[in-house]
Computed example of a mutant assay.
Amino acid sequence: MESFTSWDGTELAYRVVGSGPPLVCIPGGPGQAVEYLGELGGLTRSRTLILLDNRGTGASGVPADPATYRVDRLVDDVEALRQHLGLDRMDLFGHSASGGICLLYAARHPGRLNHLVLVAPSLRVVGLPSDLEVDRVLAARAHEPWHATAVTALHAEATTPEEQQRYRWEAAPLLYGRWSPAAQAQAAAEPAQFAPAATDGFYAGFAPDPALPARLAEFTAPTLLLAGEHDIWPTAAAVRQLATLFGSHELVVQPDSGHFPWVDDPAAFAASVEAFLAR
């Protein structure tokens, strides 16, 4: 791991893997260490991935001010990383909750981006619902042997940390296109990757800026929005709604995939992202 000092003195860690032009990658969760991104389905063959551990997660330091865990404050860490890397402009990748960080970065620093890649992005920062047509998505998988248990766990309210972990595991198949060994391995590793303070602080006190959609409409850098066909948060329908806010964008719905499309079909995922970044 390499490190740098961010704007407030917090030491942040990042990992560099692969070869080719750099792609700065911000993990989601929220509050999850970047290791879950792995090598993004083999993107390391054509890209140098700069994999950041957000503050308070993974190998990065804990900030003195817990308020800096908030999604809009993390934008400053992305900008500090860009400056540290010496990049005048960069290609930026966000997944899930970090999609919100990247959307806010695009609005605040539009001239610093060549390409923006958003995979299963959270829509909370733009005030859009993430669960459009979720009942249809869930019903389409009713034939799966784990379906009834997973849906029950998805809607269950845990009363203890142990119950929360059990429900999370039982609902996990809903986040993947196939409950394969690779999916099970990733889901099993997740609990140890989360930092509760970073998770809890991500949206603490945050309210969407009503002006953000208008700023995104003016954003001109090419943007890839990639959704999984079976994802339940955000659904593909919700990502299509996000797409209407952008002028220059490409929308890809990856078949037979969920919230982690590089796990479900690494080759298809890498091909989509590589083709987009090459244009």
Rank of each mutant, 00 (worst) to 15 (best):
A185Y: 00
A185N: 02
A185F: 00
A185Q: 07
Q186N: 05
Q186L: 13
Q186P: 00
Q186H: 06
A187V: 05
A187E: 09
A187K: 03
A187L: 06
A188Q: 02
A188C: 02
A189W: 00
A189N: 00
E190A: 09
E190V: 04
E190C: 03
E190M: 10
P191T: 05
P191G: 06
P191Q: 06
P191N: 08
A192K: 03
A192M: 02
A192N: 04
Q193N: 02
Q193H: 04
F194H: 06
A195I: 09
A195T: 15
A195P: 08
P196G: 13
A197H: 13
A197D: 15
A197M: 13
A197C: 14
A197P: 12
A198R: 14
A198Q: 12
A198P: 11
A198K: 13
A198G: 14
T199M: 14
T199Y: 14
T199N: 13
T199W: 12
T199D: 13
D200W: 09
G201I: 08
Y203I: 00
Y203Q: 02
A204E: 15
A204Y: 09
G205S: 08
G205Y: 04
F206Y: 15
A207Q: 14
A207P: 06
A207E: 15
A207I: 06
P208C: 12
P208T: 10
D209W: 06
D209S: 11
D209L: 08
P210V: 12
P210C: 10
P210L: 12
P210E: 13
A211P: 02
A211S: 15
A211Y: 01
A211G: 08
L212K: 08
L212T: 07
L212H: 07
L212F: 06
L212M: 07
P213G: 02
P213K: 09
A214M: 06
A214R: 12
R215M: 08
R215A: 15
L216A: 05
L216F: 03
L216V: 05
L216M: 05
A217T: 06
A217E: 08
A217K: 13
E218P: 02
F219E: 00
T220P: 00
T220N: 03
A221P: 11
A221L: 09
A221S: 15
P222E: 02
P222V: 02
P222N: 04
T223R: 09
T223H: 07
L224G: 01
L224T: 01
L224E: 00
L224R: 00
L225F: 10
L225R: 11
L225Q: 11
L226K: 06
A227D: 08
A227I: 09
A227P: 11
G228N: 13
G228Y: 09
G228C: 11
G228E: 10
H230V: 06
H230R: 14
H230T: 10
H230C: 10
D231N: 14
D231W: 04
D231K: 09
D231V: 04
D231R: 10
D231Q: 10
D231T: 09
I232Y: 07
I232V: 15
I232W: 07
I232L: 13
W233Y: 14
W233D: 14
W233N: 14
P234H: 04
P234S: 04
P234T: 03
P234A: 03
P234Q: 05
P234I: 05
P234D: 04
P234G: 04
P234R: 01
T235H: 09
T235A: 09
T235L: 11
T235Q: 08
A236T: 05
A236P: 07
A236N: 03
A236K: 07
